[in-house]
Design a protein around this nucleic acid. Sequence first.
RNA 1: GGUGCAGGCUGGUUUGUCGCUGUUCCCUGCUGGUCAGGGAAGAGAGGAAAGUCCGGGCAACGUAGAGCGCCAUACUUCCUAACGGGAAGGUGCCUGGCCAGAAAUGGCUGGGCAACAGAAAGUGCCACAGAAAAUAUACCGUCCUGGUUCCGAUUUUCGGUGCCGGGAUAAGGGUGAAAUGGUGGGGUAAGAGCCCACCGGGUUCCGGGUGACCGGCACCGCAUGGCAAACCUUAUGGGUUGAAAGACCAAAUAGGCUUCGGUCCAAGGGCUGCUCGUCCAAUCCCUGUCAAAGGGAAACCGAAGUGGGUAGGUCGUUUGAUCUUUUCUGCGAAGAAAAGACUAGAUAAAUGGCAAACACUUUGAAAAAAGAACAGAACCCGGCUUAUAGGCCUGCACAUUUU
RNA 2: GCACCCGUAGUUCAACUGGAUAGAAUAUCGGAUUUCGGCUCCGAGGGUUGAGGGUUCGAAUCCUUCCGGGUGUA
Length: 129
Amino acid sequence: MLYMRNCKFSKDERLHSKKSIKELFDKGSSFFLYPFKVICLDQEAAAENQILVSVSKRKLRKAVHRNYIKRRVKEAYRLNKFLLEEPGVTKKLIALVYVSQELMGYHKIEPKVKKILQKIPKAKFPKNE
RNA sequence: GGUGCAGGCUGGUUUGUCGCUGUUCCCUGCUGGUCAGGGAAGAGAGGAAAGUCCGGGCAACGUAGAGCGCCAUACUUCCUAACGGGAAGGUGCCUGGCCAGAAAUGGCUGGGCAACAGAAAGUGCCACAGAAAAUAUACCGUCCUGGUUCCGAUUUUCGGUGCCGGGAUAAGGGUGAAAUGGUGGGGUAAGAGCCCACCGGGUUCCGGGUGACCGGCACCGCAUGGCAAACCUUAUGGGUUGAAAGACCAAAUAGGCUUCGGUCCAAGGGCUGCUCGUCCAAUCCCUGUCAAAGGGAAACCGAAGUGGGUAGGUCGUUUGAUCUUUUCUGCGAAGAAAAGACUAGAUAAAUGGCAAACACUUUGAAAAAAGAACAGAACCCGGCUUAUAGGCCUGCACAUUUU
RNA sequence: GCACCCGUAGUUCAACUGGAUAGAAUAUCGGAUUUCGGCUCCGAGGGUUGAGGGUUCGAAUCCUUCCGGGUGUA
């Protein structure tokens, strides 16, 4: 670590409110970056970016495998979320939906998450008042 | 030591660093709290956490109890909080070994399987084939016998054959998954447990066992198949719904109720589904002779209070039929006693990521390379079932080697 | 979490209360008809009835254990 970064991942940064999730999936706009579908929504009132990781039961049948993917995606977000911390960028609700059927290791997932996090600040999303 | 089968146990370890969720302690902050932030210590998935197939705890509802219906279970005894689970035993079937014997076979012993109550309470079903599929009856057949036709031999009479009758039978009918005890002998006109021997079956009694049941004597010629994972009968058990149960706290917005204050010749209705416009209407009750006036209802506006209740949160929620060790009781499942331990508690859901080292398996002389199963708590327990790499232990069988 | 339902030719469905070869349409293939194709006619193949075990003389059907798919509920 060259300089101190906030590498924590507390509960405030996880999207867990039923209402917010419904808004995100109703109003948010999405794009694909294999193996993820990313859904995003600007949230001016929020203090933190909030993220949600989802792995479909249809794609990965075993609960162990779903946990395996979710843990690695969350870890990749935790170590790379500073990419979103740019001045003038509003806070967002983000959903990362894993759509592949293959069981990827951390070293395959991390560069994809990095790409996504670099792409998000540049794109424009609908705002939620 | 090897291979196979059966059963049981186990289900990697350590370090660094960056994180997550509880617990305890410390510091700081204020709104002084079951608060927020920071730090430290110590803890953090399984034998199946799975399937949700059973049984309980717990909770709500209902409760004066009972019956019907429905569902489940079904050899015996025991274990257990309970069970459809487990232990031990009985019976039947299958199978391996040993012994006796010429053989048939018998005895001893190991293992496996069994929804293993009732078919003589009743109802129903048993295709095709077969005379017949549950009734010992009909049919064919066998035997005896009366009348009669014809033929042969012939004194009467006898034999054969066809037809019409009367009787005795249940031997035979070879089909089927299944056929009304089996084999042999006697017996008879022909036959039949009609009689006898052996085998099989049933009943009573006696003895053993808590019991399922076992053993023995005697007697009965033997009397009526299968299916209850068909309906059913008997016995036993089950009230229903499940932690998203349930208890509590409770923001914002809208609406409900109560109180207070204010407004009211406009609320309201029609044309018209809406807006505008226009028209209609100028309310009702009480006090009062009437009028005037006052009060109330209704409507609207504002304020305060309040009940329900949504988002959200807290509890339920992890100290328990708990775990470990020792001793005792019991064939065993298991039980009792003593000592010690606290061992996940999440909630769009933590228990992790990365980098190494060691141990294990395979290949290899080595270096090294590859592999490392099944699988993730969701209120909690007891089981069952299913998945499972590798390792360890026990028993049995087989072949081989050594002594 | 709880409760429940369904798996049959490539596809859509049958097969009664267990009874024999699992049937029909369509699709596929072959032949006929046509100059060729379509339509039509004739014929054929295609199923371990989701998998295993059991009951029964006999199982798609009854019982049981798994696998897969789906529905309701709050």
